[in-house]
Amino acid sequence: SQTQRTQDENEARRIAEEWKRRGYDVEVRNRNGHWEVTWD
């Protein structure tokens, strides 16, 4: 799996939607004030 971090929730949601469209299983988490998008 791969993880991308961002400070911006909207960006995190956009990234998550992009990977979901490509057929990946995606998880979005808030950790210590930043957002992590993990896909595999």
Rank of each mutant, 00 (worst) to 15 (best):
S1R: 08
S1E: 10
S1L: 13
S1G: 13
S1Q: 13
S1F: 14
S1A: 14
S1T: 13
Q2F: 15
Q2W: 14
Q2L: 10
Q2H: 14
Q2V: 11
Q2E: 07
T3H: 07
T3G: 06
T3Q: 06
T3I: 13
Q4T: 13
Q4Y: 15
R5V: 15
R5H: 10
R5N: 08
T6M: 09
T6D: 03
T6L: 10
T6S: 06
T6A: 14
Q7C: 10
Q7P: 11
Q7H: 12
Q7E: 13
Q7G: 08
Q7Y: 11
Q7R: 12
Q7M: 10
D8F: 07
D8R: 04
D8G: 06
D8L: 04
D8Q: 04
D8M: 04
D8P: 02
D8Y: 07
E9T: 02
E9Y: 11
E9M: 05
E9W: 09
E9L: 07
E9A: 07
E9R: 04
E9G: 04
E9I: 07
E9N: 02
E9V: 05
N10Q: 14
N10I: 11
N10L: 12
N10M: 12
N10G: 11
N10S: 13
E11V: 06
E11M: 06
E11Q: 07
E11G: 03
E11D: 08
E11R: 05
E11L: 07
E11W: 05
E11I: 07
A12F: 02
A12E: 00
A12V: 03
A12W: 02
A12Q: 01
A12H: 01
A12N: 00
A12M: 03
R13W: 13
R13T: 06
R13Y: 13
R13E: 06
R13F: 09
R14V: 08
R14P: 00
R14W: 07
R14N: 07
R14T: 09
R14K: 12
R14Q: 11
R14D: 08
I15N: 03
I15H: 03
I15P: 00
I15E: 02
I15G: 01
A16K: 04
A16V: 04
A16S: 05
A16D: 01
A16I: 03
E17I: 06
E17D: 11
E17V: 05
E17H: 07
E17G: 06
E18S: 07
E18G: 05
E18I: 12
E18V: 09
E18M: 12
E18R: 07
E18N: 07
E18W: 13
W19L: 15
W19E: 02
W19F: 11
W19Y: 11
W19V: 05
W19D: 01
W19K: 08
K20L: 12
K20D: 04
K20Q: 10
K20H: 08
K20I: 13
R21I: 09
R21P: 01
R21A: 14
R22H: 07
R22Y: 06
R22T: 03
R22S: 05
R22P: 01
R22G: 03
R22F: 06
R22K: 13
G23M: 01
G23W: 01
G23A: 01
G23I: 00
G23D: 02
G23Y: 02
G23H: 03
Y24T: 02
Y24A: 04
Y24N: 02
Y24F: 10
Y24Q: 03
Y24K: 04
Y24L: 04
D25S: 13
D25R: 14
D25H: 14
D25P: 06
D25V: 13
D25F: 13
V26R: 00
V26Q: 00
V26N: 01
V26L: 03
V26S: 04
V26G: 01
E27K: 11
E27V: 14
E27A: 10
E27P: 01
E27H: 12
V28S: 01
V28A: 02
V28R: 00
V28E: 01
V28F: 03
V28D: 01
R29G: 05
R29P: 01
R29A: 10
R29M: 09
R29I: 14
N30R: 11
N30S: 09
N30E: 14
R31T: 13
R31W: 11
R31S: 10
R31V: 15
R31N: 13
N32Q: 08
N32E: 10
N32P: 03
N32D: 14
G33D: 08
G33A: 03
G33H: 03
G33E: 05
G33Y: 02
G33S: 06
G33F: 02
H34A: 12
H34L: 14
H34W: 15
H34V: 15
H34S: 10
H34G: 09
W35D: 00
W35S: 00
W35A: 00
W35F: 05
W35E: 00
W35V: 01
W35C: 00
E36S: 04
E36A: 03
E36K: 02
E36G: 01
E36P: 00
V37L: 05
V37I: 10
V37D: 01
V37S: 00
V37F: 02
V37M: 02
T38W: 11
T38P: 01
T38E: 07
T38A: 08
T38I: 12
T38V: 12
T38H: 10
T38S: 11
T38L: 09
W39E: 02
W39I: 14
W39N: 03
W39K: 05
W39V: 10
W39A: 06
W39Y: 08
D40C: 14
D40L: 14
D40Y: 15
D40G: 15
D40Q: 15
D40H: 15
